Amino acid sequence: MHTIDRWFEDYAVGESRASVGRTITETDVVMHAGQTGDFFPHHMDAEWTKTQPFGQRIAHGTLVMSVAVGMTAGDINPQAMSYGYDRVRFIKPVFIGDTITVTAEISEKSDHQRRPEQSGYVHELVTVTNQHGEVVLVLTHLYLVGKRP
């Protein structure tokens, strides 16, 4: 990683980037359960999940989201900060051993309502797919980005 200055004006709607793959492991699931306190049997009980529709343990949606967002983190940009996430949807389950990849595409730009001369919002559509090419999670990541002085 290195530091870059990328201003609001430098982003173009339609530009995209893609990650390499990352396999979700049992350790990921166990650690996330410990960090969040979510020990639901859907994630932790291999025998019980054999009796359920998916037939195996599933990764926490919040785990997949966290990993996916981390996979999109790249260069440090002092001109931008995460403003939050909208429209988060867990489309399909992610199982232990699945490999996810992430694409992130600039879908929209808008001026800050109170300080339009100083900053704006960049909306990035984040799509997470598994090794079969199936979409498992989508969200919109919003960035607050400074404009050139």
Rank of each mutant, 00 (worst) to 15 (best):
M1L: 03
H2E: 14
D5T: 08
D5S: 04
R6H: 00
R6M: 03
W7D: 12
F8V: 01
E9Y: 04
D10E: 14
D10M: 10
D10K: 10
Y11R: 01
Y11K: 04
Y11S: 02
G14P: 09
A18I: 11
S19T: 15
G21N: 04
R22T: 03
E26W: 01
D28E: 01
D28P: 00
V30Y: 11
M31F: 06
A33P: 10
T36N: 09
G37A: 11
D38V: 05
D38W: 07
D38L: 00
H42K: 12
W48V: 12
T49L: 03
T49I: 04
T51E: 03
T51W: 01
P53C: 09
F54D: 06
F54H: 06
Q56C: 00
R57P: 05
I58M: 14
I58R: 11
A59Y: 06
A59T: 09
T62Y: 12
T62I: 11
L63T: 02
S66L: 05
V67W: 08
A68N: 00
G70N: 08
G70P: 09
T72F: 12
A73F: 06
G74R: 09
G74K: 13
I76D: 07
N77V: 00
N77M: 03
Q79V: 01
A80T: 09
A80K: 07
M81T: 10
Y83G: 05
G84L: 13
Y85D: 00
Y85S: 09
D86W: 07
R87E: 13
I91R: 13
K92T: 00
P93L: 12
V94E: 01
V94N: 04
I96A: 03
G97N: 00
D98K: 08
D98G: 04
A104Y: 00
E108N: 14
K109Y: 07
S110D: 12
S110E: 13
D111L: 13
H112M: 06
P116S: 14
Q118D: 14
S119H: 02
S119N: 00
G120D: 14
Y121T: 15
V122Y: 10
H123M: 08
E124N: 15
E124Y: 08
T127R: 15
T127S: 15
V128K: 05
T129R: 14
T129A: 10
Q131C: 02
Q131D: 01
H132K: 11
G133M: 04
E134M: 10
V135Y: 02
V135P: 10
V136Y: 01
V138D: 11
L139T: 15
L139G: 09
H141R: 14
H141Y: 10
Y143C: 10
Y143V: 05
Y143G: 11
L144E: 06
V145N: 01
V145M: 05
V145T: 11
G146D: 08
K147E: 04
K147V: 02
R148H: 08
P149R: 08
